[in-house]
């Protein structure tokens, strides 16, 4: 007799638990406002990334096409993956002194892990992490970027 009661108890428990589960899913299908997915390429204009989001390394230039990189290679040293490669050259400045400036600030995006170690390492805050996350390109060579714009100079007063 006990077994028979247990048998029906099992059935009752089973059905109750199944209905409970269906109530949860039923709750959500009847509330389309709770949908969480976003229509990604369509919402590109309104998509707001967080300020600190680490996309890729960029070098900001001001309106006179001047950057703040002195070519000290601190970022190159601190980078764990050899992502940053600084090719510098010595030029003669207007006052006759020779100074080391960057020729090319090469950034290998394909090797970057976005760890963000290079940003605090920079003594002049010449590089920052942008919010751009769309890195897909059709050719690998496009991932090797030169961050200083052609013809750009170092901002005066930055040593």
């Amino acid at each position: 007799m006990k077994e028979i009661i247990q048998y029906f108890k099992d059935i009752a428990f089973g059905i109750k638990s199944l209905i409970k589960g269906m109530r949860v899913t039923g709750h959500y299908i009847s509330r389309p406002s709770k949908i969480i997915t976003q229509q990604y390429p369509e919402n590109k204009e309104t998509l707001q990334m967080f300020d600190r989001f680490r996309g890729e390394v960029v070098m900001p230039h001001d309106e006179n096409n001047e950057h703040m990189c002195t070519g000290c290679s601190a970022c190159e040293v601190v980078c764990p993956n050899g992502t940053i490669e600084i090719i510098s050259k010595r030029v003669e400045m207007e006052d006759g002194k020779k100074q080391k400036i960057i020729d090319k600030f090469v950034y290998h995006l394909q090797m970057c892990t976005m760890c963000g170690l290079c940003i605090p390492a920079c003594p002049t805050d010449a590089i920052v992490m942008s919010n751009d996350f769309e890195h897909a390109v059709f050719d690998r060579s496009q991932l090797t970027k030169i961050l200083n714009k052609p013809g750009s100079k170092i901002m005066p007063g930055i040593k």
Binding site: F50, R52, R54, T113, M114, C115, G116
Partner: peptide
């Protein structure tokens, strides 16, 4: 992950700790 992204700068591989503290203060 949104909290992480806002404070640490990444959603999955946050790398927020550095020896001696944190990379930056909380948001």
């Amino acid at each position: 992950t949104d909290i992480f992204e806002e404070t640490c700068g990444a959603r999955l591989t946050m790398n927020y700790n550095i020896p001696g503290g944190l990379m930056f203060d909380i948001h």
